[in-house]
């Protein structure tokens, strides 16, 4: 009898009754804590997510390189198309072959970084909406979009930026551009800006799944637009088409603008409109995502 009660007391001591509010978690950025703490928390999270991701990719060694090979072949195909075109023509809308090489290199940079960081996370959104797995993301004390976007970082894709870098460097030397720090900083800034714009575009396309069950055609549209704007600089487009591809579906900006800046043909108006379009799309994507979440809660499962 006494043995029994002893034992259970031991167990309960082992189990420590908790003070109720989880006051012990000081490490956490509460609302109103410093931006640095928030940033640090998110960086640590990113690290943990990357670890998980690497673990998963290691599990399947074959698919570790999948993205790399998929986009590698895509890159080669684009290169083949590109060289076939230049077997038959000398310049595209006044752009020389070197400028085109710089352009294609820039596009591969944007594309490779996109694949590396957020692409695979975002494309899983429609499925998560359909099977209700988004529930789990909503119940965690993190921004669900942050979690979703960066949980599938693909390190293999980072290698895809290598040919891009080679092309950009080669074209720069060929064109004899004198490289200043300001030029490099401006170019990198525009690359980041375009990565943000592309993030908005990819997210917006996936958010359609909140309203429509099947969104294959949207994916197809995205592929088509990416494919074409990858192959030809935005300066090709004119009139209504230009408005569409610069403002409404601004895929044509992605590599064109950084290239124009680096080769010294980006004017002030284009700078401004690029900033405006990126800002507008970031706000739009945020708004649509929020609306989507509302919608998510009204259809039931």
């Amino acid at each position: 009898m006494s043995m029994d009660s002893n034992q259970s007391r031991n167990e309960s001591e082992h189990f420590h009754r908790l003070p109720n509010p989880p006051s012990s978690f000081d490490a956490l950025p509460e609302s109103g804590s410093s931006p640095a703490a928030v940033l640090l928390h998110h960086l640590r999270l990113l690290g943990a997510m990357l670890k998980i991701r690497l673990g998963r990719q290691m599990m399947y060694r074959a698919s570790f390189w999948t993205a790399f090979f998929v986009d590698g072949t895509l890159f080669l195909v684009q290169l083949a198309i590109f060289s076939t075109l230049f077997l038959n023509v000398e310049s595209v809308n006044g752009w020389s072959q070197e400028q085109m090489v710089f352009f294609v290199g820039t596009f591969s940079l944007v594309d490779g970084l996109e694949m590396c960081f957020y692409f695979f996370g975002l494309i899983s959104l429609p499925e998560k909406i359909r099977d209700g797995k988004l529930d789990l993301y909503l119940t965690k004390p993190v921004n669900p979009l942050f979690f979703l976007s960066f949980e599938s970082i693909d390190v293999g894709s980072a290698l895809l930026t290598l040919p891009g870098i080679v092309m950009v460097v080669w074209a720069t030397m060929k064109m004899g551009i004198s490289v200043t720090p300001l030029l490099v900083i401006g170019y990198l800034f525009l690359l980041v800006l375009m990565l943000l714009l592309l993030y908005d575009l990819v997210l917006l396309m996936r958010c359609a799944a909140f309203w429509f069950t099947r969104t294959d055609a949207l994916g197809e549209l995205e592929g088509e637009l990416m494919g074409f704007t990858f192959r030809v600089p935005g300066v090709v487009f004119q009139g209504a088409m230009k408005t569409i591809l610069y403002v409404l579906l601004p895929y044509a900006l992605l590599a064109t603008i950084p290239t124009q800046f680096f080769t010294g043909i980006l004017n002030g108006r284009e700078w401004l409109s690029t900033l405006a379009v990126t800002l507008a799309f970031t706000l739009l994507a945020r708004f649509v995502w929020k609306q989507g979440l509302k919608r998510y809660g009204s259809t039931g499962s």
Binding site: F25, L45, G47, A48, K51, I52, G55, K140, P141, F147
Partner: peptide, 11 residues
């Protein structure tokens, strides 16, 4: 591995 990720998520 999931536990470790949750450790970061929940701090």
């Amino acid at each position: 591995d999931t536990f470790r990720l949750n450790k970061e998520i929940y701090g």
